[in-house]
């Protein structure tokens, strides 16, 4: 893992420290070279790269976060060790008096090495079985269909207005959508790096996800209009189901499928924004012919 890639994990570490009341500014961050953990002054050490070693017979009273690089404990670590990424090795005869928590990366405790308390929080995704995958898609279809039926029944005009923008102004919707998604993503990531704006960043990402879900409803509504179903809510629900399956199907087409998926998202996103979620019909400026 490069130093740049480990930066988000460093943000997580800082957040964890803040949550526990510790002072993040009193943390030693190591990104390269060789570091002797015994001579580090601070009580918290984050290792993002290079090698960090606690030599035999040495003692360190620190909490060590491993977010990259290699950490080897040969002496006695009086504090906790938390491994997010990278490698941590507890050598024979070495000991960790606190908790060794593995969230990611590689942790090795050699025979003869002692750890007071060892826990793990596995967050690595495991491949889904075909049945699980089908179940997930079905759940997605049901939830989206329910939402689409609800919105189509309560406020059918909203979806119709966004749908008109999608079909009537696909190009400009796509441009606005792609530009907005790209800039907002970058903006939210940079906001997260400031730490104080992490809540805004999270809210922003949730908002984007919300707009993404809304695009499903809009496309579902558009597909539903073309189905031989008279009730608008049922048509929208069926349309959303078809749209979810369409997106899943596109996932099997290499490259082109992804391009189409992103294109649909961009056009939908732009149309939602241009039409104020369907509250207003969007019209381009009038140009003299």
């Amino acid at each position: 893992m490069s130093a740049l890639e480990s930066l988000p994990l460093l943000v997580v570490v800082v957040l964890l420290l803040s949550a526990t009341g510790a002072d993040p500014s009193a943390m030693t961050v190591v990104f390269d070279g060789e570091t002797d953990l015994a001579v580090v002054d601070n009580e918290v050490v984050a290792v993002g790269g290079g090698t960090a070693t606690l030599e035999p017979n040495a003692t360190a009273a620190a909490t060590v976060f491993v977010i990259g690089g290699d950490v080897t404990v040969r002496g006695t670590l009086e504090g906790d060790a938390r491994v997010f990424a990278g490698n941590l090795t507890v050598a024979p005869g070495a000991s960790i008096r606190g908790e060794l928590q593995t969230i990611g990366g590689e942790t090795t405790v050699a025979p003869g090495g002692t750890v007071e308390r060892r826990t793990s929080l596995a967050v690595a995704p495991r491949p889904r079985s075909p049945v699980e995958r089908a179940g997930f898609i079905l759940a997605q279809v049901l939830v989206m269909a329910g939402l689409a039926a609800l919105v189509a029944r309560r406020v059918p005009g909203l979806l119709a207005t966004v749908g008109e923008t999608v079909t009537g102004h696909a190009l400009v919707s796509g441009v606005v959508g792609s530009l907005t998604v790209l800039t907002l993503l970058v903006l939210f990531v940079y906001m997260a790096f400031t730490l104080v704006l992490v809540p805004v960043s999270v809210l922003g990402l949730l908002g984007m996800a919300g707009v993404g879900v809304y695009t499903y409803l809009v496309y579902g509504f558009l597909i539903g209009q073309r189905l031989p179903v008279t009730r608008p809510d049922v048509a929208a629900a069926a349309g959303v189901g078809a749209y979810v399956l369409l997106l899943e199907g596109l996932g099997f087409v290499p490259l082109l499928g992804t391009v189409v998926q992103l294109g649909l998202l961009a056009v939908g996103f732009g149309a939602v924004l241009l039409s104020y979620f369907g509250l207003q019909t969007w019209e381009p400026v009038s140009l003299p012919r």
Binding site: A3, D32, T183, L187, Y190, F193
Partner: peptide
């Protein structure tokens, strides 16, 4: 946004010189 990105990168590189290695 572009200049926020440029200056943020420079600040991060100043704090963590290893980040500028790549």
């Amino acid at each position: 946004l572009t200049h926020v990105m440029y200056t943020s990168d420079l600040r991060v590189a100043g704090l963590f010189p290893a980040l500028a290695r790549n």
